[in-house]
């Protein structure tokens, strides 16, 4: 199949970027989306051009390394999947595909389609953990956790930290990311001890880093490769209220 690709190119963080249009011939519907980009890069290298930098690693939707805003949607058009799980069978011969990096003040572009997501780490550093030193843990079964809570905690914890929520959000808010961690740990008895400071500090950190605020459009939930529910944001809001009032 032949494609027209409109891709954001930017040499480095300081350089000014722009869209470059590539006519790609000979792609196959059997490719994954990222394999299609691999193929594009092969053709670019052979022509002596600089290949398009994009991030990927596990290519099975769990590491959260891949990103890409494809034709106006985070991780492309499929729900519950990361870009690495997107297949070219979803496209037709002659299609034009616009490929952009995540865009947010807190996610500066490093090169082409690669952004810096360190801001997520900074948010977690503000409290996204349980302070349990190795060796100090009690016997695992000494703290029963109702199954319903454990399951919900798992759903929250399935966040892969890719940043799709931020991109999908018209406000570039990191609320779903924060909620996934706060909610997971709030649901578990182990995490209750630090629940207050966690909610307060993580929110404050996200504000400081320049993420927007949540307006409950729900786009994050739809574009999240793991389908993490807005209900976790509601829990975050409750935790925040409890922590500040």
């Amino acid at each position: 199949m032949n494609l027209t690709l409109k891709i954001w190119r930017q040499k480095n963080a300081k350089a000014k970027g722009s869209f470059v249009t590539y006519k790609l011939e000979g792609a196959s519907q059997e490719m994954s989306f990222l394999e299609m980009l691999d193929y594009l890069n092969t053709t670019l290298i052979k022509k002596g051009e600089d290949p398009v930098a994009f991030e990927h690693d596990c290519r099975e939707g769990i590491c959260g390394t891949c990103s890409l805003y494809i034709n106006g949607r985070a991780h492309g058009q499929d729900s519950m999947s990361a870009t690495c799980e997107l297949r070219m069978s979803r496209y037709k011969d002659g299609d034009t595909i616009v490929i952009e990096p995540w865009r947010a003040k807190a996610f500066p572009v490093i090169k082409d389609l690669i952004v810096d997501r360190l801001a997520f780490e900074k948010i977690l550093e503000a409290g996204g953990f349980i302070s349990a030193n190795a060796g100090a843990a009690p016997e695992a079964n000494s703290i029963p956790v109702p199954r319903e809570h454990a399951d919900k905690a798992f759903d929250a914890a399935s966040c892969i930290g890719c940043g799709a929520c931020v991109s999908a959000c018209k406000n570039a808010s990191a609320q779903l990311f924060i909620a996934s961690k706060v909610s997971q740990l709030a649901l578990l008895p182990q995490g209750r001890a630090e629940a207050k400071s966690r909610a307060r500090n993580m929110i404050a950190k996200a504000d400081e880093l320049g993420f927007g605020s949540c307006t409950n459009t729900g786009a994050c939930e739809v574009e999240c490769p793991k389908g993490i529910s807005l209900a976790h944001i509601a829990r975050l809001n409750r935790e925040f209220l409890k922590a500040t009032l």
Binding site: A140, A150, Q190
Partner: peptide, 15 residues
């Protein structure tokens, strides 16, 4: 250790 760190391992209905 992992349980204490908040890893949501699968549980029985008993918790």
């Amino acid at each position: 250790q992992l349980t204490a760190a908040g890893v949501p391992f699968a549980r029985e209905y008993s918790g």
